[in-house]
Design a protein around this nucleic acid. Structure first.
Length: 571
DNA sequence: GCCGTTTTCGGCCCGACTGTTTTCAGTCG
């Protein structure tokens, strides 16, 4: 059973208990669920080793439940809770402004069991008169239902990052003297974003708020107060803006960056050291004297910690590592020396080889690889043997003519169902190197898929395994294969596992990156650009590497060209 | 239900905003 499935069950239990008004247990279940989600090994390994209780937040009772789950695939406790609660009631919790108390009240007083029931009740004006419900609440809930029905999930980091960059630019233009930054999951560069958080330090909060709520693209102002405003954009995404005094900038940035789990642990740490932390600063608990507030790094330092980069703040051991002064030095956003996976108009992309070269030069790269699709990928205009040989000649000509950055003549070669590569030996041998991918027969069973991948990784021309799990965020689950075995094999063969930087892939994921590095495999952060400007998407790939605790030495395309040629035998 | 340099019981992060029950509860992040 997958970790995510176990976590989902525990989250569901938390929701049921919350609906029943049970105190504290929901948090306990959520904490355990969150820890299990970020494990880098399968939960069944902990079960077999008898170390379930080593997982933070897992005690006797939850360990027993996990055991029942992984051995039988079912959990009687959850079935009992499920039977006691009308199924639609959980959906009510997803509606903004409806929490457990209101959901239960609606059920008990009006028999409302689903979002549909709730809509009908509002149209019949049956909510008014209920304790705690007035006309405005009714209107807000109706709005909330519309949002839930239209949004249907979280935004990918790519679009959220661009939107937020544009908003910050507009606010800064009008208020040049303020400090402004992304915060929340966006600053942590999570792969999906629930809403965009922006933090401002200014002595004139009202003026900044006014600019914010009256920007182009605002569909509706959800809330507007003295320190916080929320709007919903026409694109459906919600943006929260918070304004704090300049004196508490660092503490506020720390606080609003989260994650929630990280902050809970930071608060507990503060308490254990006789301090107290809020968005206004770090204070001595008894005297109330300010210890740090202006500078985010100082807030961490005064707690006895190294500065923790936002991408690590997920309560996955970063606080303990920072206390021991042993955080990794993360790969920087400007440390890539090249891109090993780019497409051109020879297959399914736009842009010529020369345009890709020019973009690489603009980005300050030392090298870039042309890796168009292979022959069997007809849907993406894969190159035939003859076309590929022709392209290799062309790449080498341009390389001669234009000089650095160095152009590699590569190919994104499919590994076919039987484990063979999509070009014959004599053609592969003409390449500088190959990027291997799975693009077909996604539904093979674990054994067959693992064998297929391992066979492909056995070819000496393969130097990068692209988008290794095949997932598409929110659209397609990874294919089934033995991840550990593949990583081990890639490590032994000197093949890098890719972080594909496309926002709907980000494959490897942060958790998979961390596991791969632990095993000792190397990573290649590539754009998979299908137009020259998409080469900049590597920002999200680097972010994912950082979230996976990767440092420069883990990333092969952070190497200068000379080392890459020598150590990786690319040419 | 979990946890422990406050350790086997008694706590469990903190504050803003909103609407309504006019002094506070519910929700959210």
């Amino acid at each position: 059973m997958e970790n995510s499935e176990v976590a989902r069950v525990l989250y569901e239990i938390a929701d049921y208990l919350e609906l029943q008004g049970v105190a504290f247990k929901p948090q306990a279940y959520r904490r355990a669920a969150s820890a299990i989600e970020s494990l880098d090994r399968n939960i069944s390994e902990f079960h077999s080793a008898g170390t379930l209780r080593d997982i933070p937040g897992v005690g006797e009772a939850i360990a027993d439940k996990i055991t029942e789950l992984v051995t039988t695939g079912k959990l009687s406790y959850m079935e009992k809770l499920r039977a006691e609660t009308p199924p639609g009631l959980l959906d009510l919790l997803a509606v903004p402004d409806i929490g457990p108390k209101k959901a239960m009240l609606l059920f008990k007083e009006l028999g409302i069991k689903s979002v549909d029931d709730l809509k009908k009740a509002i149209f019949d004006h049956r909510l008014q008169g209920l304790k705690g419900f007035g006309a405005k609440t009714e209107e807000r809930i109706l709005q909330g239902i519309r949002v839930v029905e239209s949004r249907g999930g979280r935004a990918l980091i790519g679009s959220a990052y661009e939107t937020s960059t544009a908003i910050i630019g507009r606010i800064r233009e009008r208020h040049p003297d303020i400090k402004i930054s992304m915060a929340g999951s966006l600053r942590r560069m999570k792969e999906t974003i629930g809403d965009i958080d922006i933090l401002v330090a200014s002595g004139e909060p009202v003026a900044v708020m006014d600019t914010f709520v009256s920007m182009d693209g605002v569909e509706e102002t959800v809330a507007k107060g003295e320190t916080k405003s929320s709007v919903r954009l026409k694109t459906g995404i919600q943006v929260d803006l918070r304004v704090v005094p300049a004196g508490s900038w660092g503490a506020a940035l720390q606080y609003f960056t989260g994650s929630k789990e990280h902050n809970v642990e930071i608060r507990k740490l503060a308490i254990s050291k006789g301090m107290k932390i809020s968005e206004y600063g770090l204070f001595e608990r008894d005297s109330g004297k300010e210890i740090a507030a202006m500078d985010e790094g100082e807030v961490y330092n005064k707690l006895g910690l190294q500065f923790i980069p936002p991408e690590l703040r997920e309560d996955r051991g970063e606080i303990e590592a920072a206390a021991r002064n042993s955080l990794p030095e993360l790969i920087g956003y400007d440390e890539l020396k090249g891109d090993l996976h780019c497409h051109t108009e020879w297959s399914d992309a736009s842009g010529t080889i020369e345009e890709v070269w020019r973009e690489a030069k603009k980005m300050g790269y030392e090298y870039v690889a042309i890796t168009d699709h292979s022959q069997s990928l007809k849907i993406a205009s894969g190159l035939s043997e003859g076309r590929l040989l022709e392209q290799i000649k062309e790449v080498k000509n341009i390389r001669e003519r234009l000089g650095p950055p160095w152009l590699f003549a590569g190919s994104e070669v499919d590994v076919l169902g039987d484990g063979s590569l999509d070009f014959p030996r004599n053609v592969l041998d003409e390449l500088d190197f190959a990027v291997m991918s799975v693009h077909s027969k996604f539904k093979m069973d674990e054994k067959a898929m693992t064998g297929r991948i391992l066979a492909g990784l056995g070819d000496e021309k393969v130097k990068v395994f692209a988008h290794p799990t095949g997932r598409l965020i929110g659209q397609r689950v990874p294919y089934t294969f033995d991840f550990e075995k593949v990583v081990e094999s890639a490590k032994d063969a000197g093949i890098a596992l890719e972080i594909n930087s496309f926002p709907d892939r980000l494959d490897l994921s942060d958790v998979n990156v961390r596991r791969s590095i632990e095993i000792g495999a190397k990573i290649s952060i590539d754009s998979d650009a299908h137009s020259p400007e998409q080469m900049e998407l590597v920002r999200y790939g680097v972010a994912t590497a950082r979230r996976g605790w990767a440092s420069k030495s883990d990333i092969i395309n952070a190497m200068p060209l000379s080392s890459l040629l020598k150590e990786w035998g690319l040419s």
